[in-house]
Design a protein around this nucleic acid. Structure first.
Length: 272
DNA sequence: CGTAGCGCCTGCCGGC
DNA sequence: TGCCGGCAGGCGCTAC
């Protein structure tokens, strides 16, 4: 479900309800997520701890308590909501953090591809975070950097930008949308991109992600912001999910293909 | 090493 | 109405 914009919107939504409030209780109803949930460690180390910060690294949400970190990944179908503590439990409500603010932070994740992790050590050394490439809005993610990695790989450019080791946060929707904005065919081998292509793609990735965050993310079916409202970027999608519909620029029908087992959309006329 | 393909799960939708 | 295949916003593991 979530790519970087949806995760960022989730962080922004939950922050006021967590920051400077204490975690009063941790409830794990389903310990089998992508990795086993470290239930005992969570209960022992998070209970009665104040939340000092909520940050994001790639698609991971990091909740900081004194000298430890709770790390949450939403996988494909995960959703974090802020709810009154007496809200009835629904199917797939796997994890709760009760808060001194009177609310509960609740994870619902039907497909259980998400994760609840915990670490005491430095965040940068945490295995899942250690492998991640630069943040798309950081100085490290420059047009020059994109040129360098593109020149070294022959995989389709869409696969390259979706690989979190290249740059974090670009998932299946925004990869297609960024490539449309940059006028690049998603199937092009990464090393075939010119420097100018990379400059356009770099800018497109940043613009698409920033605009999606500003619109509250993309709701296709099950994503909602932490207050339950949908994201409004769906209306902005130019190619994703628009197979056989006319391109908004040139009216050629949008093509839908499978690329690396992921559905991929592009305009055969605008994207070369 | 880079790359391709599979599998983890549940839910939903369209076709028969 | 029910069954079945295919598909879904992510990502790690395996084999080559």
């Amino acid at each position: 479900m979530p790519e970087l914009p949806e995760v960022e919107v989730t962080c922004q939504g939950i922050r006021p309800y967590l920051l400077n409030h204490a975690i009063t209780q941790v409830v794990v109803r389903q310990p089998q997520l992508r990795w086993p949930v470290p239930t005992q460690a969570l209960k022992k180390h998070l209970t009665d701890q104040p939340v000092l910060a909520i940050t994001r690294r790639g698609k991971y949400i990091v909740i900081h308590v004194p000298s430890e970190h709770l790390i949450i990944h939403l996988g494909m179908s995960g959703n974090l909501r802020i709810l009154p503590q007496d809200t009835a439990i629904r199917k797939h409500d796997h994890f709760d953090c009760l808060l001194s603010s009177g609310y509960v932070l609740r994870l619902n994740d039907p497909r259980r591809f998400g994760a609840i992790l915990w670490t005491k050590g430095p965040l940068a050394e945490f295995p899942q975070l250690k492998k991640l490439g630069p943040e798309p809005f950081s100085a490290a993610f420059s047009a020059k950097y994109l040129q360098q990695i593109a020149s070294k790989h022959k995989v389709p450019i869409k696969a390259l930008i979706m690989n979190a080791a290249s740059v974090v946060g670009v998932g299946n929707i925004y990869a297609s949308e960024s490539l449309f904005m940059a006028k690049i065919n998603p199937q092009r081998p990464a090393h075939s991109l010119t420097d100018k292509d990379c400059v356009r793609l770099h800018k497109a990735i940043q613009k698409i992600l920033a605009n999606a965050i500003q619109k509250g993310g993309t709701t296709l079916k099950d994503f909602s912001q932490s207050d339950g409202k949908p994201g409004y970027f769906k209306q902005e999608l130019k190619v994703y999910g628009r197979k056989d519909e006319p391109c908004k620029k040139c009216h050629t029908n949008i093509i839908g293909i499978q690329l690396g087992q992921r559905s991929t959309y592009y305009c055969p006329s605008c994207q070369v």
